[in-house]
């Protein structure tokens, strides 16, 4: 993983591209995700942000916090607009050669609703075409912008305004769906590991084709925890193994530093420790808790088997 020292030597990374004075809630996980994304990518990008918290927290017109080209967009349109940017940059590179248009990065920065629900068709289309874009899902596990309604990324048992007694179904595994598209790069991140975010985006920047990066970004008001605890909550999700950090480069799965030791189940903290920090799991039944823990253990079991197969195969 990149060291902080190495990051500090990067002039672009030392600059803030998402400026202070924005309208993020205190302890916003999205802000950390966006700041570190931009520290890795730098300003030579075009970002589309379909309807989500990000459309609001950038500030009311005409004030705006992103110090880079950023375009708010209709909910389902994210991936297609990013593809449109890419096509235009290619056309401009043809018409104005040597002016750097071929180096422009097209990026879609969407929430979990805009990705796992309404935007999944466009995203799947872009991935199938292997459009040269970076698609980022910042995942706060519900429609936070509209007032905490369940999305297909909301975890089992979580209370939202549309699941007042806790969500029955499980979180949709979108990174797995993206892996099934055989795109060159899929990665998961947590805002508790900014250097990991930095490193993965640096890598994504160097790869041609569709890159999908899914960042867990806790939401203090939506999940119900004190705003100073955001980073700690994200860290606990990783430690409990409920959010697994990994990357898949050209089909090869690698567990990231913070998740790798958790292949040993005894290294994972029990899910109840994570769940009990958040009001959205208040009053969760013992049955649901057991189901969540079983799901986590199953996921790891599958992952462990896959890694073993991969090792065998590479021998």
């Amino acid at each position: 993983m990149a060291s902080l020292k190495k990051v500090m030597e990067d002039e672009i990374a030392c600059k803030e591209w998402f400026l202070p004075g924005n309208a993020c809630c205190a302890g916003c996980g999205l802000e950390v995700a966006l700041r570190w994304t931009m520290k890795a990518l730098g300003p030579d990008i075009a970002m589309v942000t379909p309807a989500s918290c990000l459309n609001v927290v950038i500030g009311l017109w005409p004030k705006t916090a992103p110090d880079f080209p950023q375009f708010n967009m209709a909910f389902a349109a994210g991936a297609a607009v990013a593809t449109g940017f890419e096509a235009a940059f290619k056309a401009k590179a043809h018409k104005f050669p040597g002016k750097g248009w071929d180096k422009m990065i097209s990026i879609c920065f969407a929430g979990d609703g805009g990705t796992t629900d309404i935007g999944i068709q466009g995203l799947s289309g872009a991935a199938e075409r292997n459009s040269n874009i970076i698609y980022v899902c910042y995942d706060n596990e519900a429609y936070m912008n509209t007032g905490i309604q369940r999305s297909s990324s909301t975890p089992h048992g979580a209370i939202t305004t549309t699941t007042p007694f806790g969500k029955e179904r499980y979180k949709k595994n979108l990174p797995a769906i993206m892996r099934a598209h055989d795109i060159p790069y899929v990665a998961t991140c947590s805002i508790s590991e900014p250097l990991d975010i930095y490193e993965k985006f640096k890598k994504a920047k160097s790869i041609n084709g569709t890159k999908y990066i899914h960042i867990l970004a806790p939401c203090a008001p939506g999940w119900g925890f004190p705003s100073e605890d955001t980073i700690e909550i994200a860290r606990m999700a990783v430690k409990a193994g409920s959010w697994i950090l990994y990357e898949v480069e050209n089909g090869v799965l690698t567990l990231s530093k913070k998740s790798k030791p958790l292949l040993d189940p005894s290294k994972r903290i029990p899910i109840i420790e994570y769940v009990s920090t958040q009001k959205r799991f208040a009053g969760i039944s013992e049955k649901t808790l057991i189901e969540i823990q079983e799901q986590i253990d199953n996921d790891w079991e599958k992952l462990s088997t896959e890694l073993k197969c991969q090792d065998e195969y590479s021998k």
Binding site: G84, F85, A88, G125
Partner: peptide, 17 residues
């Protein structure tokens, strides 16, 4: 693209550029 919604979405992106 994979749908008409994406047709016009992508052209909005290209035209803006």
């Amino acid at each position: 693209v994979e749908s008409e919604h994406s047709v016009l979405a992508s052209l909005v992106g290209s035209s803006m550029a």
